[in-house]
C-alpha cells in the first residue's frame, strides 16, 4: 500500500493533448506502432528514449481532449510509472488511474528539470526532488482511487468485485 516510485523525469509544458499522446493516424494499428509515435510532434526522441520506470512531469491540462484511453495506455506501455502535472484533462485522469498509472496534481513542480530524478509516494503525496534534495507535495488521491491504482487499475479491481459477488452467491 505504501509503494514508492523513483525514476528519471521527462518534463512537458501545458496543454499536452490526447492527439499528441496517441495520434489519430495510428489509432487503428497495434499498440506498439501507436506508442512509437507518442508525443512525437513535441519531442521526437521521447518514444525511442524513454525507459522503464520513468516519470512524466507536466503543466496544465495534461491529456486534454479525446476520451481515447490509448493516450494513457501508450505511456504505460513505454514504461512510464507516474504522471505529476499541474492539472489533467478530466477523462485522461480517469483513464490513467484505470490503467494503474499514478496520476497526481501538484503546484510545486517549477524547479524540476528534464533528466532530474524524483521519488513519489502516492499514499502520502510526498514528492522528493532528489537532485535538489527538496521535498515537494502532491494533492492526495481519494482513498478508493488510491486502492484501485495500487491494485493495478480498474480491471483487477472489477475482478475483485466479481469474485466477491461469486463468493456471496455460493
Amino acid at each position: 500500500m505504501s509503494s514508492t516510485i523513483t525514476g528519471k523525469v521527462w518534463v512537458f509544458g501545458d496543454d499536452i493533448d490526447t492527439d499528441v499522446l496517441a495520434p489519430g493516424l495510428y489509432m487503428k494499428g497495434s499498440l506498439e506502432l501507436l506508442a512509437s509515435h507518442c508525443l512525437e510532434s513535441v519531442d521526437s526522441d521521447f518514444a525511442s528514449s524513454v525507459a522503464e520506470g520513468e516519470i512524466v512531469i507536466a503543466g496544465e491540462n495534461f491529456g486534454i481532449g479525446s476520451s481515447r484511453e490509448q493516450a494513457a495506455q501508450v505511456l504505460k506501455h513505454l514504461g512510464i510509472k507516474a504522471i505529476i502535472a499541474k492539472s489533467f484533462g478530466g477523462i485522461f485522469f480517469r483513464n490513467a488511474l484505470n490503467y494503474g498509472l499514478v496520476a497526481l496534481t501538484s503546484d510545486e513542480l517549477g524547479q524540476i528539470k528534464p533528466g532530474d530524478r524524483v521519488s513519489i509516494k502516492a499514499a502520502t503525496g510526498e514528492l522528493i526532488h532528489i537532485d535538489e534534495n527538496t521535498q515537494l507535495n502532491c494533492d492526495l488521491l481519494p482513498p478508493g482511487l488510491l486502492n484501485m491504482v495500487e491494485a493495478g487499475g480498474l480491471v483487477p479491481h472489477l475482478q475483485q468485485i466479481l469474485s466477491q459477488q461469486a463468493e456471496k452467491g455460493k
Binding site: 490526447t18 479525446s66 476520451s67 484511453e69 494513457a72 480517469r94 484505470n98 480491471v155 472489477l158 466479481l162
Partner: peptide, 28 residues
C-alpha cells in the same frame, strides 16, 4: 467519446469516459 457533452443540450447529464471505464459500466 469526449464529445458526449453534446447530450447535455437535452437536459440530461451525459459525459465522456474511456473504454476501461465503459467496461466497468457494462459489467456493473
Amino acid at each position: 467519446d469526449s464529445h458526449s457533452p453534446t447530450g447535455g443540450a437535452f437536459g440530461c447529464f451525459m459525459f465522456g469516459i474511456g473504454a476501461t471505464d465503459m467496461a466497468g459500466v457494462l459489467v456493473t
